[in-house]
Write a protein that binds this DNA or RNA. Structure first.
Lengths: 138, 138
DNA sequence: ACATATTGGTTGCACAAGTCAACTAATTCG
DNA sequence: CGAATTAGTTGACTTGTGCAACCAATATGT
């Protein structure tokens, strides 16, 4: 059920994006969101938060840089780290995507009350937390 | 959030399956489930229900046949259609997977009450229904 | 302080999943 | 009958992902 629901949201989002000639993937949208919320994030942080291999992050960021949504700069204090900074273009694209995302969400959540939505989100968070606890146990 | 939660469930499931040398993908598990619930399903039905291209279904079924979990038979009334029948081996594997899935679900849902889980499932269903309604409108 | 371990990033390889288009065979419909 | 539709199959291609090897920079232990 989770998979089908995610697919519904994903395809609806992507068709809306194609209409407006936006070529970003959902994952890249998520990354832009995180970079906007916290500009100190490095690639390893993104990999940890998104629970993906760091190589995937590298390539998705490569794509974002190619489209000039993001700049990659070596951290001055620790030259291993790379800081990721949203460009103006990236910020505008993010706002566009957020508008589309909230429209799509509103449509897909018709008939769902605020309290139900809150519980829904709580359960999603709890599942993720339980998953992380399990990981540590291993 | 949906994506991250699905990933948590998927990876947890797959690591549990690897422990027991089960090589089935989650999608193949879902297909086995559907075939078990309704033995009249043809490949096109699976594609419609899972909202995937029929070519994906063909290949996933090919894999299931290779592992002797399923048999593909031409329908006698309509020779275009192929009936998909679970073998004994497939049925046993399905039961194994279901046991693993319910264990993983139980662990990931600790701290979630029955009523919260009900609402959670309701919202997932509603999102899917809203998605289908939108599609028809197009 | 120096050797070793760890961390962050990058690249190559491999594989599964998904999309798209073309094609065959069987059936339906005008 | 002939055209359109349906079910299935195949091939080429893209994307997402995971794994392993590797380099450079930093941290750690004795």
């Amino acid at each position: 059920m989770l998979g089908m629901t995610l697919r519904v949201f994903k395809t609806r989002m992507m068709t809306e994006c194609k209409k407006k000639d936006i070529e970003l993937s959902l994952e890249q949208f998520v990354i832009l969101n995180m970079l906007n919320a916290n500009c100190d994030l490095i690639q390893q942080d993104l990999a940890n938060h998104l629970q993906k291999d760091k190589s995937i992050i590298v390539r998705q960021i490569d794509g974002l840089i190619e489209d000039q949504y993001v700049v990659r700069l070596t951290n001055k204090e620790d030259k291993r780290k790379k800081n990721l900074i949203l460009t103006k273009k990236g910020f505008e694209r993010l706002n566009e995507m957020e508008r589309i995302a909230s429209e799509v969400s509103k449509k897909l959540l018709t008939g769902v009350s605020d309290s139900e939505l809150e519980i829904f989100k709580d359960v999603l968070v709890k599942i993720q937390e339980n998953g992380e606890l399990e990981e540590e146990a291993i």
